[in-house]
Amino acid sequence: MDSKLLDTADRTRRTILTTVAVGGIGMLAGCLGGDGEGPDPVSLDQGQSCDYCNMRIEMHPGPVGEAFYGGDAPPSLPEDRENGIARFCSSSCTYNYLLENEEQGHEPQIAYGTDYSSVDYELTDDSGTTVISAHLSAEAFAELQDLNFVTNSDVEGAMGSSLIGFTDADDAAAFADEHGGEILTHDDITREVLSGLSA
């Protein structure tokens, strides 16, 4: 066969495969974090409590999260919550809430978590445990599906072992190299992963 025809056929096949792959990723992104369309993140530094465990968010270290349910807010949320926002003191509370409510047919329009690639975080010693700083301003958040999570590292947050998220995959890899753990993406987070987090 003519080499130009082979080259054209190969490019066409690659285009089709790329289109199928991108389409599949788009379908997965619709779960547990919406379709990327929804309200912008808001700061969580006004005395808010976690909608999963009731702890006061600003009193604890580590990654936090929020999800906007709009008109499809789970019944556990107050009816007057603007945009049906649910707020969380940790990444594990975020995902536990999202997964439980997805099983009940409630999926958020959009969900966010702390992006440690966007902040100057600190690690401190808390009675022999290394904890990572909390960042509660709206600018510190990224969509959950954009984060690479370091899990089961030797660094903890509000609820013990945390899912520490980075939009930059190299930042996640460097953190895991220094502090241990494995890297997971948004679509990897399941109930089994959450129950396997070391306390």
Results as ranks from 00 to 15, higher is better:
residue 190 T to L: 10
residue 24 G to D: 15
residue 137 S to E: 02
residue 182 E to F: 05
residue 183 I to Y: 08
residue 78 P to F: 11
residue 106 H to T: 05
residue 25 I to P: 12
residue 130 T to N: 05
residue 118 S to F: 01
residue 109 Q to D: 08
residue 56 R to G: 14
residue 91 S to A: 09
residue 156 E to P: 03
residue 29 A to G: 13
residue 122 E to P: 02
residue 190 T to D: 08
residue 70 G to K: 02
residue 62 G to I: 04
residue 21 A to H: 14
residue 9 A to L: 15
residue 27 M to T: 15
residue 135 H to G: 02
residue 51 D to V: 12
residue 118 S to H: 01
residue 55 M to K: 12
residue 86 A to S: 02
residue 19 T to Y: 15
residue 76 S to Q: 11
residue 184 L to Y: 06
residue 42 V to A: 10
residue 140 A to K: 00
residue 199 A to Q: 13
residue 61 P to A: 05
residue 167 T to N: 05
residue 156 E to N: 15
residue 79 E to M: 09
residue 121 Y to F: 08
residue 73 A to I: 02
residue 34 G to R: 06
residue 148 N to C: 10
residue 63 P to S: 04
residue 96 N to S: 13
residue 21 A to G: 12
residue 37 E to K: 05
residue 47 G to C: 15
residue 197 L to F: 05
residue 161 S to T: 14
residue 130 T to M: 09
residue 97 Y to T: 03
residue 146 D to W: 03
residue 171 D to G: 07
residue 136 L to V: 00
residue 118 S to M: 01
residue 73 A to L: 09
residue 181 G to A: 10
residue 170 D to P: 03
residue 74 P to E: 11
residue 34 G to M: 07
residue 142 A to P: 02
residue 48 Q to C: 07
residue 167 T to P: 07
residue 184 L to T: 08
residue 196 G to E: 11
residue 169 A to Y: 03
residue 94 T to M: 04
residue 128 G to V: 07
residue 2 D to H: 13
residue 172 A to K: 04
residue 35 D to K: 02
residue 172 A to L: 04
residue 136 L to R: 00
residue 4 K to M: 14
residue 90 S to N: 07
residue 104 Q to C: 12
residue 103 E to G: 08
residue 119 V to F: 00
residue 26 G to R: 12
residue 103 E to Q: 12
residue 165 G to K: 01
residue 92 S to C: 06
residue 81 R to H: 13
residue 163 L to N: 12
residue 150 V to R: 00
residue 56 R to W: 10
residue 41 P to T: 01
residue 183 I to W: 01
residue 170 D to Y: 02
residue 115 D to W: 03
residue 134 A to G: 01
residue 85 I to S: 10
residue 50 C to Y: 12
residue 115 D to A: 03
residue 38 G to N: 01
residue 155 V to L: 10
residue 120 D to W: 01
residue 66 E to I: 01
residue 180 G to I: 02
residue 156 E to L: 14
residue 123 L to A: 03
residue 27 M to K: 15
residue 35 D to W: 07
residue 139 E to T: 02
residue 97 Y to C: 02
residue 185 T to D: 13
residue 101 N to G: 08
